[in-house]
């Protein structure tokens, strides 16, 4: 009795998986979407949009979330190569999974990056234009302060996607002879970036106590902008007209912009558009006409009090 029970239960489990497998019927194209970051809101938006687009194209999409495990991404890439899927989409730094990408390439399977980073292993990488996002917010700041005044910059040059934003803002401010960059701060991001940015901004406010001595704070992403905003409000200097901008338009930033205070603008990435464009890039690749550029940019949008509610 016990013996038959012991063998029957694993068999039941196998039967269950057989039933599940039957659901995954053959389709026009087998696409594996592999990411360790499905729990992140941005990634969820990409993947949902990708799946929507895939439905129209009658693709069989397998979304594989390795839950933060990057080595498992390599394993699943190897499995996708063995399985001979028609294309792979990744959302992870390609430099960390090169071993798996090499296996996929050897199998002759194209890989499209969905906000993944540049790599010779990718047909193309679909992402937001960091240069353009920084140009939009820096120009917003320059125009709001009439091309004149002291600006505090929050940058992070150690992380390439954020570093390019700083370079562009430098160029915009440098092109305005009456704008002076008071300080170019690199906050400590180990706590998420808000608390240390606030402390740094408090010190800068203390060193520049006169009204009008600081015209604007340009931040390369939202967290330092939120920290600077907290410092300005805590110092009771919210009525001096200091203009604060961020990038990414995260929910906390949108709330601050909607409140109508010093935090005036941020950039929204079109996560949905990135997923859709990634599906388009896969379709082009499968039809034998892959995108020409190694990067496909999806337009971003300046978020201000006027459109934050949309």
């Amino acid at each position: 009795m016990t013996a038959s029970l012991r063998t029957r239960l694993p068999t039941a489990a196998l039967f269950l998986s057989a039933v599940l497998a039957a659901g995954a019927a053959a389709a026009a194209g087998k696409i594996a979407v592999i990411t360790p970051y499905l729990a992140q809101p941005g990634t969820q938006f990409y993947v949902e949009a990708f799946q929507e687009a895939a439905k129209d194209k009658a693709w069989d999409v397998n979304v594989i979330d390795t839950k933060g495990d990057v080595a498992a991404v390599i394993s699943r890439l190897e499995d996708a190569a063995t399985q001979k899927v028609d294309a792979v989409v990744i959302n992870v730094d390609p430099a960390q999974v090169e071993a798996g990408l090499a296996a996929v390439k050897d199998a002759g399977i194209p890989v499209v990056g969905m906000d993944a980073g540049a790599s010779p292993y990718l047909v193309t990488n679909v992402t937001s234009n960091g240069y353009a996002m920084a140009a939009d917010t820096a120009a917003y700041v320059a125009n709001r302060i009439g091309g004149k005044g002291n600006v505090v910059m929050f940058v992070f040059d150690a992380f390439p996607p954020v570093q390019v934003r700083g370079v562009i803002a430098d160029a915009v401010f440098g092109n305005n002879p009456d704008i002076k960059v008071l300080d170019r701060v690199t906050p400590d991001v180990s706590d998420g970036g808000i608390a240390d940015s606030r402390a740094k901004m408090e010190a800068i406010l203390a060193a520049n106590p006169d009204k009008g001595s600081i015209s604007a704070v340009w931040a390369a992403w939202d967290q330092p902008a939120l920290g600077a905003l907290q410092a300005i409000e805590a110092a009771g200097r919210q009525d001096e007209g200091i203009v604060v901008t961020g990038i990414d338009a995260n929910p906390q930033a949108r709330e601050a912009i909607a409140a109508g205070g010093n935090f005036e603008a941020s950039m929204a990435q079109d996560f949905h558009g990135i997923g859709k464009a990634a599906a388009e890039a896969v379709a082009q690749t499968l039809s034998g006409k892959p995108p020409k550029s190694s990067v496909v940019y999806v337009p971003t949008k300046l978020i201000t009090a006027d459109n934050v509610g949309d």
Binding site: N62, V63, I64
Partner: peptide
């Protein structure tokens, strides 16, 4: 892990 991925079963 390997087999279920090859069978395209949801992660």
């Amino acid at each position: 892990g390997n087999g279920l991925t090859q069978m395209s079963i949801d992660s």
